[in-house]
Design a binder for these strands. Structure first.
Length: 240
DNA sequence: AACGGACTATCAATCTCCCA
DNA sequence: TGGGAGATTGATAGTCCGTT
């Protein structure tokens, strides 16, 4: 969903929010105004421009079989479809695993899922974080094995690309933003921790999710614009 | 990890049409 | 009549990718 152009952060957040509102084992129709979604996601000008962005994101999700839309003339009725984008009806992962288990032992594996805390929405984190940060948060949560663990997380840029189709830019930007939001702490760890005979000790960054931070209101961090200010002494402008 | 150029999908504005 | 959706178009923010 996050590819090229300005990125697909609105559609990513919108689809996550559709999933968030599912209460049963099968998808239910959602009739929510575009401006209400725009307000939830804290889009600028939720009545006009924001609502328009929601409409565009909704159209993209429909075109790519992530949702089904029934147009009634006033409100659109949205039904989420399978997360893999194959156009199949959505079934809650727990129920899907149970159903799959009846025919194969791979049920739990095929429908492995992670749960995102309600506070991700209710405390405004989804509105404050960029698409890259949301993508990285989901990636780290997946690597963490859900909410219960507290693991040291690491994956290389190559792994980010191959497993999650995330570019190095998205990875580093997302991590930086999560750290700034207090959702991730990063430490330096030796790669060959137990190999004391190794000639060189290689270090790498490992990340720890700070899930308890989700229970606090998201900090609104206005985007910093890097503006080249002419240096009065005649040297080149720079932003630290 | 950082940088810079190329690329491209999103965004915003506007108009028109449809439906209740 | 008002709200929502569809179509079009130019600008540009954000991603990709090669290089250092």
């Amino acid at each position: 969903m996050l590819r090229g152009g300005r990125g697909g952060q609105v559609r990513l957040k919108l689809y996550l929010s559709y999933l968030w509102l599912q209460k049963d084992d099968t998808a239910r129709e959602l009739a929510i105004r575009h401006n209400a979604w725009a307000t939830l996601l804290d889009l600028p000008d939720p009545e006009k421009a924001g609502a328009r962005r929601i409409a565009d994101a909704q159209a993209w999700l429909e075109e790519h079989d992530f949702i089904d839309v029934t147009r009634t003339g006033r409100l659109n009725l949205v039904t989420v479809l399978d997360e893999t984008g194959v156009g199949k009806p959505w079934i809650a992962p727990g129920a899907a695993a149970k159903k799959e288990k009846e025919t194969s032992d791979l049920g739990a594996l095929l429908h492995r899922y992670i749960q995102i805390p309600q506070t991700f929405w209710t405390q405004g984190h989804i509105a404050v974080l960029s698409g890259a940060a949301v993508a990285m948060f989901l990636t780290l949560l997946c690597e963490n094995g859900g909410l219960g663990e507290d693991r040291a997380l690491w994956f290389s840029p190559r792994e980010a690309e191959s497993r999650f189709a995330l570019s190095e830019d998205t990875r580093s930007k997302g991590l930086r933003e999560l750290a700034h939001a207090g959702l991730v702490t990063t430490k330096r760890r030796p790669v060959n921790e137990t190999d004391f005979q190794a000639e060189a000790l290689y270090m790498r960054n490992v990340h720890f999710l700070r899930l308890e931070r989700l229970t606090e209101p998201a900090a609104v961090t206005p985007r910093r614009r890097v503006v080249g200010v002419p240096d009065q002494r005649g040297t080149s402008a720079g932003t630290p």
